Computed example of a mutant assay.
Amino acid sequence: MISDKPSFDPTYGYSLESLLRVGWPEEPGDFVDFWESRYRRTLTIHPDPEMTRCKGDHPDFDVYDIGYRSTDGFIIGGWLLKPKREPIRRGLVVGHGYGGREAPDFDLPVGEAVILFPCFRGLARSRRPPVPDNPAGHVLYEIDRRDRYILGGCVEDLWLAVSTLISAFPHIEGHIGYLGISFGGGIGALALPWEPRIRIAHLNVPTFGHHPLRLTLRTLGSGEAVRRYERRHGSVLETLRYYDAACAARHIHIPVHVAAALFDPVVAPPGQFAIYNALAGPKSLFVLQAGHSDYPEQREQERELLAELRTFFEPL
C-alpha cells in the first residue's frame, strides 16, 4: 500500500463512466500464433513438483513448501495448501503482486480446494540472478528481446503451476481457477486465453493493460520504469504490443471477475478498465474506491468483495 500522497492525480481525470469507455490497442497480426505456440512448447515440460511439509500447524490447512520446474531451467518456489477437514474437489492458482509474497493466504473465499501460491521467476522464492528482484528492474529485464522478455516467462510459470496441480491431484482437472492481484492480475490476463485448463478467474487491479496509454500516465509502480525506458530508447512498444493484457483479454472466454479501482497511483485505472472492457466472455465488475492505497471504505469493500467471490467461484 502507498502511504505518501502522490504528486499527481491517481484518477487521471477519469470518471467511472469514462473508464468504462476505455478501449484497447490493436494487437499484432501474429499475436494469437505467438502465444499459442508458446503454450504448446511450455506444455512439453513436466514440472516434477517437490513438496515438503512445513513446520508448525494451521487449524484448517496442511502447508507445504513446493518447487517445480519451469521453462529456461527456472525452479519456481512457493507454497501449497491442502485442506485438513474438507474433500479436495477443485484447485486454485494464486498470483502475487510485484512486491512478491512472503507467505500463503489462508482466507481465500473458495473452500474444498487445494491452493498453489507460486512465486513468479525472479521474485520472492523464485529469485535467480541476474534477474532483478525489484519491480523497476524486473519489468525491464530483456524487454528489448520479444521472445525472451521476463513477462513471457512468468506466464509460462503460471501455465506450469496448473500442470503442477494436475500432476499432484489429477482428479481436480477441469475444476481449476485462478486469482491474481496487480502484477499477478496482468500475468493472469496474458495467460488465460491460451490455457483451457483454467475454467474461471478473478483479476484484482490488474496491470499491463493498454501499454500505449500506460506510457502516457505517470505512476509510482513498475510502469514508471517502462515510461523512462521508452523516453531513453523509444522502441519499447515493439515488445510490449505482444504483452498487452487488454489485447489478451479479447481472447478470454471463461467467466472473469475483475476488481478495478477508480483511484490508483501504482496501476493507472484506465489500464485496469481496458482489460475489463476488452473481456470477450462472461464478466463481472467490482468497483474499488482505490487500489494500492489505504482508504476509509477499504475494510467494508474487502468484505463485500470476498462475499462476491464466494458466490462467483462456487460453480468451479
Rank of each mutant, 00 (worst) to 15 (best):
residue 179 L to K: 06
residue 105 D to A: 15
residue 49 P to K: 09
residue 273 F to S: 01
residue 144 D to W: 12
residue 239 T to G: 03
residue 259 A to P: 09
residue 126 S to N: 08
residue 266 V to G: 01
residue 248 A to S: 11
residue 212 P to M: 01
residue 177 G to P: 11
residue 242 Y to Q: 02
residue 160 L to Q: 05
residue 84 K to I: 08
residue 129 P to G: 09
residue 222 S to Y: 04
residue 211 H to N: 04
residue 298 Q to E: 14
residue 155 V to R: 01
residue 274 A to D: 00
residue 316 L to N: 04
residue 133 D to I: 03
residue 7 S to Y: 09
residue 229 Y to T: 10
residue 135 P to F: 07
residue 315 P to V: 12
residue 55 K to E: 05
residue 55 K to F: 03
residue 163 S to H: 06
residue 303 R to S: 04
residue 173 E to K: 15
residue 185 G to D: 09
residue 280 A to R: 15
residue 192 L to N: 04
residue 171 H to Q: 09
residue 13 G to S: 12
residue 242 Y to L: 12
residue 144 D to C: 06
residue 266 V to M: 02
residue 62 D to S: 14
residue 222 S to L: 13
residue 21 R to V: 06
residue 117 F to W: 03
residue 227 R to T: 11
residue 85 R to Y: 13
residue 223 G to C: 11
residue 3 S to N: 12
residue 48 D to V: 07
residue 112 E to V: 10
residue 3 S to L: 13
residue 240 L to E: 00
residue 165 L to S: 10
residue 168 A to V: 06
residue 69 R to S: 11
residue 255 P to T: 00
residue 290 A to L: 04
residue 130 P to F: 10
residue 316 L to V: 04
residue 254 I to G: 12
residue 284 S to I: 06
residue 253 H to C: 05
residue 150 I to W: 00
residue 44 T to V: 13
residue 244 D to Q: 00
residue 68 Y to W: 08
residue 77 G to W: 11
residue 232 R to P: 05
residue 295 Y to N: 08
residue 301 Q to E: 15
residue 230 E to T: 06
residue 156 E to A: 10
residue 103 A to Y: 14
residue 228 R to L: 06
residue 114 V to D: 03
residue 125 R to D: 01
residue 224 E to S: 07
residue 49 P to T: 05
residue 177 G to W: 06
residue 27 E to F: 01
residue 162 V to W: 01
residue 235 S to M: 07
residue 280 A to Q: 14
residue 257 H to S: 07
residue 19 L to Q: 12
residue 196 P to F: 13
residue 296 P to Y: 13
residue 248 A to R: 00
residue 287 V to I: 08
residue 51 M to C: 09
residue 262 L to R: 14
residue 51 M to L: 15
residue 280 A to L: 14
residue 224 E to C: 08
residue 23 G to A: 01
residue 247 C to V: 03
residue 248 A to L: 07
residue 37 S to K: 13
residue 10 P to M: 08
residue 12 Y to W: 15
residue 26 E to I: 02
residue 187 I to F: 10
residue 201 A to K: 10
residue 56 G to H: 11
residue 118 P to T: 09
residue 50 E to L: 02
residue 37 S to Y: 13
residue 157 D to E: 05
residue 65 D to P: 00
residue 41 R to V: 08
